[in-house]
């Protein structure tokens, strides 16, 4: 039963989701919305698992004074601190908004801004024209980097229009890029459809657990 019941639930709900797409009837629309709401409610319970896992990892780091345990302490204090402040004062509360605006916001913005420095350093050290493929990649990157900013317009301004950097960048984005991406997307789409069907029909069972739900 431990295996059959989940398989039956997946089969029935998967089948309903496929069928309802092709039947625009009020009853189907109603149940479709209900099931979508169930998805949200069930999904929220996974947060408990996530928080539990986060706490267990960081608690053991603190307990055994592993390297970087101080960061784990900050993580746990921040997790409970924000949650308590939010629960007591609401998400529009003064302290909650201050923590967001003057704590979380500058920290995350700074972390993301550091990327510019790492990209520059990585480009200098690793972006090499070692062979034909990497040379093509490098040339395309340089053209798009310059062609998509105003300086690209100025740099090749004296060239015929079709040879100017913004035009070449537009061509690269609209032709080779689109062709390659479309091939990837179609492949991924077919793969997802195939795997979904296998799950709905119970052929693919790894989601039941490592042993496929065997007792």
């Amino acid at each position: 039963m431990r295996r059959e019941v989940p398989l039956l639930i997946v089969f029935l709900f998967g089948l309903f989701m496929i069928v309802q797409y092709f039947i625009p009837h009020a009853k189907f629309a109603f149940w479709y919305q209900e099931f979508n709401n169930w998805t949200i409610i069930i999904g929220i319970f996974t947060m408990i698992v996530g928080i539990g896992s986060l706490l267990s990892v960081h608690y053991s780091k603190i307990r055994f004074r592993q390297e970087g345990w101080g960061y784990s302490l900050v993580t746990i204090v921040a997790l409970f601190g924000m949650a308590i402040v939010g629960l007591l004062g609401g998400t529009e509360g003064d302290l909650f908004l201050k923590l967001y605006r003057f704590g979380l916001s500058p920290v995350t913005a700074t972390m993301f801004s550091l990327l510019a420095f790492f990209i520059a350093s990585a480009a200098y050290r690793a972006f090499r024209a070692r062979n034909v493929i990497s040379t093509l990649l490098l040339a395309a990157a340089v053209v798009v980097m310059l062609g998509r900013v105003p300086i690209g317009e100025i740099l090749g301004g004296w060239l015929p229009r079709w040879l100017q950097l913004p035009n070449i960048a537009d061509f690269l984005l609209n032709v080779p890029n689109v062709a390659a991406k479309r091939a990837i997307y179609i492949g991924v789409g077919l793969g997802v459809a195939a795997v979904s069907l296998k799950i709905i029909l119970g052929i693919e069972r790894t989601w039941l657990g490592g042993d496929g739900g065997k007792r």
């Binding site: 520059a120 972006f127 024209a129 900013v149 300086i151």
Partner: peptide, 12 residues
């Protein structure tokens, strides 16, 4: 972007 391109050229 120009400086990063210059870095790439110098690196190569």
């Amino acid at each position: 972007h120009t400086v990063i391109v210059i870095f790439i050229v110098i690196g190569n």
